[in-house]
């Protein structure tokens, strides 16, 4: 199938159990409490492209990343990888090795007791991708060079490296199994800006050279704009607006997307001083009814308080907003 997306989410939902420990529940007669981290999320990620999910903390974007690589199992909906249900795909090493992940924290993502060579070599050994020790060595050497490190770096431990270098090691490990899909969870959020630029450039070069597909998670809209073909804006577990990056950044339609874009400080800002935004993200354990954004929304009506909005197509963009559907969401 030519047009089969590498990764597809169909109405995926996932909730965390945030209830107290068993004894406390029994003694305190508390019920189970759940947090709907991901709610009815759908997207398709075609080969060689980048889809970014952006939103504030607690919006569920990192949970989507973990669902995508099988660290969590969805409670509802379906995830397909290369056209097969995710657990079927993950049961086959030949498919499983085609997905890997890059994490945010450059310190916690590398085992401090392992040499870099072993860290990068682990996927190669696991999937039997090198015939013998010298072939393994050559592959690791090539990966080190590919991410801009030197071969000698392989014999050192992670603590000897700076944050940016560690993130390069992470990327080398992620590439070791020759994946098609890279799930990147805030890969540059812990880095300084000059180092962030190095890593973002490296990731784009690798995508171009290797035809990689990225699911890119970030809270930084400018980084997302720089990296993405498509963007999904998440709020309280839902994608509230999704479409081509150019369309979303040129004409944001959902009031939350507009709020986010207004809030971003841009040092070389061409926009006038940003509007102060009102309110904060509500408690996700007890989200507002109707449209979850209605308490902060300047366009909210009674309908927004009662009824969860469905997606409206505006050109290539999908928006979950009553105001947009009713034609009230025109840009002022």
């Amino acid at each position: 199938m030519v047009d089969e997306p590498v990764l597809r989410f169909d109405a995926v939902s996932f909730q965390f159990d945030v209830s107290g420990p068993w004894l406390q529940r029994v003694v305190g007669r508390e019920g189970r409490r759940t947090l709907r981290a991901v709610d009815d999320v759908s997207f398709a990620l075609p080969e060689g492209t980048t889809l970014s999910l952006v939103g504030e903390s607690g919006c569920g974007k990192s949970t989507v990343a973990r669902l995508a690589v099988g660290l969590y199992r969805p409670d509802g909906g379906a995830i397909h990888f290369e056209g097969q249900p995710l657990d079927v795909a993950r049961a086959q090493p030949a498919l499983r090795r085609q997905m890997s992940m890059i994490f945010q924290d450059p310190i916690a993502s590398l085992n401090p007791r392992w040499r870099v060579r072993s860290i990068i070599g682990e996927p190669i050994r696991l999937f039997g991708l090198a015939a013998d020790a010298s072939a393994l060595r050559r592959r690791v050497d090539r990966l080190l060079e590919q991410v801009g490190l030197s071969i000698g770096d392989g014999d050192r431990f992670p603590h000897a490296f700076s944050g940016g270098q560690r993130q390069r090691i992470s990327i080398a490990r992620a590439l070791a199994s020759e994946p098609r899909l890279l799930v990147c969870d805030e890969p540059t959020s812990a880095l300084d800006v000059s180092v962030q630029a190095q890593i973002l450039n490296l990731m784009r070069d690798l995508q171009r050279d290797l035809g990689l597909t990225y699911l890119f998670i970030s809270h930084n809209l400018a980084v997302v704009r720089h990296m993405s073909d498509r963007v999904g804006v998440m709020y309280l577990g839902r994608i509230v607006e999704q479409g081509p990056a150019s369309a979303i950044f040129a004409t944001p339609r959902h009031p939350y997307t507009r709020l986010l874009l207004d809030a971003v400080p841009d040092p070389r800002g061409l926009r006038p001083s940003r509007d102060p935004v009102v309110g904060e993200v509500p408690d996700p354990v007890d989200p507002p009814g109707g449209c979850p954004f209605h308490p902060r929304c300047p366009l909210a009506t009674d309908r927004c308080r009662m009824e969860k909005p469905a997606y409206t197509a505006v050109g290539a963009v999908q928006v979950a907003c009553h105001a947009v559907a009713e034609g009230r969401g025109a840009i002022a």
Partner: peptide, 13 residues
């Protein structure tokens, strides 16, 4: 819960 353990789980160790 650290990311290096998650990284190993993602590739199916």
């Amino acid at each position: 819960g650290k990311d290096y353990v998650l990284a190993a789980r993602v590739i199916g160790v």
